[in-house]
Design a protein around this nucleic acid. Structure first.
Lengths: 248, 248
DNA sequence: CTGCGACATTGATGCAGGTCAAGCCTGCGC
DNA sequence: GCGCAGGCTTGACCTGCATCAATGTCGCAG
């Protein structure tokens, strides 16, 4: 319900935010921010800045819990967050990983639909929901942009349904690696090794597999030379092969 | 990407639409319509009426196909539609069934994210996307309501992820029956037997199972007295049991 | 009525991935 | 340094669901 993809634009400097597509500058937390609307003028930026509060969440801490009153909207500026749902017996489905630039809580419903906790040490800009929606009410163009985000989010969710309903373990892992790689690339992280800060259990719960199957699949791909497993990440040595698996 | 749940309000008469929460009256296709915004005045209703065109789709016909330019928004007034994605090798994942009152294409993106075709003979109100968005641009309150729909849609998609990733065949079938029952109830259909106009293959492709497993699970539930399978539907004879399975 | 095609059910068998159970690394507290 | 805990990998085995195959049922065209 809550994760929003990073925008197509990523602006590293406040100036770029001011100038282009950026939205909340969150200036006092010297934070890179993500574009949300086609244009906000300097006055509006100042206004939205005043709504935001920088907050840090250490690894493993909870941002919010499913069914909690949705009191805030978050924009991640650093780190990684997992979003998940639990069944009463403890089975867990991770519905997404949120990276720097992603929004949480944009559904703007009364309660959070998922739980969220920090995988790594994480920094966010926090907006109170009431202030955020009040601002939104005055800026229809922003709302429109936000709706596009939500639509994109839904599209991703539907892709994930295909993955969970109809793909093999190999395909799931490959698709996971590809999409994570693309998301990191979009936020400017293009190192040769793809970081995997989440645990094997997290990956398993995201892909509808077990920890053992994830591990075995990594080993298998490594053995066939498609990836190299390194501490806290993988190197994708045969992208074509992975892509083939991912889109088959 | 495109299905939107029927609203909490269902108004059967044009008068109710005019008066209360309803939106598009689609008057000339004498169609029951669904609420989308907190209030539209009579003038607005007349305006949106003029944007809509009644259209009929016979069973098995295609409303639109994934990646097609999204030229229209639809509101189903009668019948049932399946929304799905295909993998290159023909595997199919149905991401949702749309009932009377549901909107299709509300993502308002340039291209449809899924394919849609009619399961039964279906009637819709069709809005050209450009006219619809133009209208929307003038009515921020409508856009806000629409965003809530999309958020709810996303929430449903996430529930479906849990189902596909972490639930057993029995639980999937039970959850499917429960949610379909509730959706039919919400649009005023409360007969003793739950209609299942879609094929076993459709159910299988929605639940990430095979046709045989669906069939066997129905038989098993029937044998244990929880349901009775009838032509084109099931009777839920032990709701508590089904609910227990569905939410376990 | 007969035959045919689409769909559903049921049974027999197979296998991808789950489960159980050792080990093995790595980091950390002492 | 040592021991210990948490995470990861690997192997052996098991099972839930898929696959393959046969049969049944219904609607419809001729």
């Amino acid at each position: 319900m809550d994760r929003i993809e990073p925008a197509l634009q990523w602006n590293d400097s406040p100036a770029a935010c001011l100038h282009g597509l950026g939205v909340s500058a969150c200036a006092d937390c010297r934070v890179r921010q993500i574009s949300v609307c086609a244009a906000l003028d300097p006055h509006e930026l100042t206004e939205i800045d005043s709504l935001s509060h920088p907050t840090a969440f250490p690894a493993k801490s909870t941002l919010f819990t499913q069914e909690d009153p949705a009191s805030a909207v978050f924009n991640i500026t650093e780190g990684m967050v997992r979003l998940y749902k639990l069944l009463p017996d403890g089975r867990r489905q991770i519905v997404g990983f949120a990276l720097a630039g992603d929004f949480l809580g944009l559904a703007l419903l009364d309660r959070y639909g998922v739980s969220a906790d920090a995988i790594t040490d994480t920094k966010v800009c926090r907006f109170s929901r009431s202030a955020f929606t009040a601002f939104l009410d005055k800026k229809p163009h922003l709302l429109r942009r936000l709706h596009e985000f939500a639509s994109h989010e839904l599209s991703l969710a539907q892709d994930q349904m295909v993955l969970l309903g109809r793909r093999t373990a190999d395909e799931r892992i490959a698709a996971f690696l590809m999409s994570l790689k693309e998301r990191f690339a979009r936020i400017g992280h293009t190192s040769i090794t793809l970081p995997l800060p989440m645990s094997r259990q997290d990956i398993a719960d995201f892909l509808g597999l077990t920890i053992e199957t994830v591990s075995r699949t990594f080993s298998k791909l490594a053995k066939s030379g498609v990836i190299v497993v390194v501490p806290d990440g993988v190197r994708l040595t045969n992208l074509a092969q992975i892509k083939a698996l991912a889109t088959r």
